[in-house]
Design a protein around this nucleic acid. Structure first.
Lengths: 163, 163
DNA sequence: GTGCCCATGTAATCTGTTACATGATTAG
DNA sequence: CTAATCATGTAACAGATTACATGGGCAC
């Protein structure tokens, strides 16, 4: 199961029956934009999940567009549990564009480096304010917001020590 | 420029002239395993960089294997600077398998959830001990280690609040 | 009835993964 | 000499991205 497939099952599990389009919207507006929510990723991923009988689709009446209400099957919930409990994968570092760049910033000319660090601090503080201003009603989003705030603080702390 | 291409330029910039094989080793033993360092990724990426004249290859004498010493060109350094100063990309959240799973952990049966959280704490503390035990001689690795330690602490703090 | 969003998908392309292939060098 | 490692690459494949295509529902 790919990360995207696991994430989709999680959305269906937390959000109840919804259409593939609605799943896309969740990714499109998500705080952690790990995926673009592009149709070319979401629809094939859902098709794979359906083929593997991990997701079931119930046709909605009075919709000529063939909109389906998707729900995880019992096997889908079990597979998702396994994915959730995969300690090795869950504990992995993931990919972080900040961490990838940070080791090389010392190679920049000093003036450029100072400008960059100032711009990064400004951007991170802007993000932090935006997150803080947002309501965290949905339980899943609240967790992501909390972890994202911690990430922002980590980066800000590190940046301010580099000034 | 892809993240991998940027990272490769960074390795060449920080590590001095080295072969494509040596670049691979850096990724293979790297603390932040964002990439596997697979030959099928590294060699094509370096080929792209060479084609774009961002990396130059000097043949080493007395090596029948055609080993080349790779160095960033002036254009390569400029492109790398741009990549380093891309505030939007650097400030992005990246992808985090922990953050992807965390919102769904509340859906697990309570007993399973407690077991998982305990296993995750153990794994993170093991990782933290391993990082602490490692020497951080190389400047680039030291930065990554520092950011990884902060990431581990964030996750541990969050997990311990969930117990 | 004309736009605009809803809703589903496909096609071309890019990049990374695993696995394989090939040959040079060096340690025992 | 033989085995392990150094060193470079390719092939088949999987998954994500952008862009495109198609058509239903609804507001004005």
């Amino acid at each position: 199961m790919t990360e995207l497939e696991g994430a989709i099952l999680g959305v269906l599990r937390r959000g109840g029956a919804m259409s593939a389009y609605a799943v896309r919207q969740v990714f499109l507006v998500s705080q952690s934009d790990e995926w673009s929510g592009s149709a070319g990723a979401v629809y094939p991923a859902i098709a794979r999940l359906q083929k593997a009988k991990l997701v079931a689709a119930a046709a909605q009446k009075a919709d000529g567009r063939g909109t389906k209400a998707l729900t995880p099957t019992r096997a889908g919930l079990a597979a998702h549990d396994d994915w959730l409990c995969d300690v090795v994968r869950a504990a992995g570092p993931g990919s972080d564009p900040f961490r990838t760049r940070a080791p090389s910033w010392s190679k920049l000319p000093a003036a450029q480096r100072r400008t960059l660090i100032a711009a990064l601090i400004e951007e991170m503080e802007r993000q932090r304010a935006a997150v803080r201003a947002n309501p965290l009603d949905d339980s899943g989003d609240a967790v992501i917001q909390e972890l994202n705030l911690a990430l922002l603080d980590t980066r800000l702390n590190w940046l301010k020590r580099q000034r």
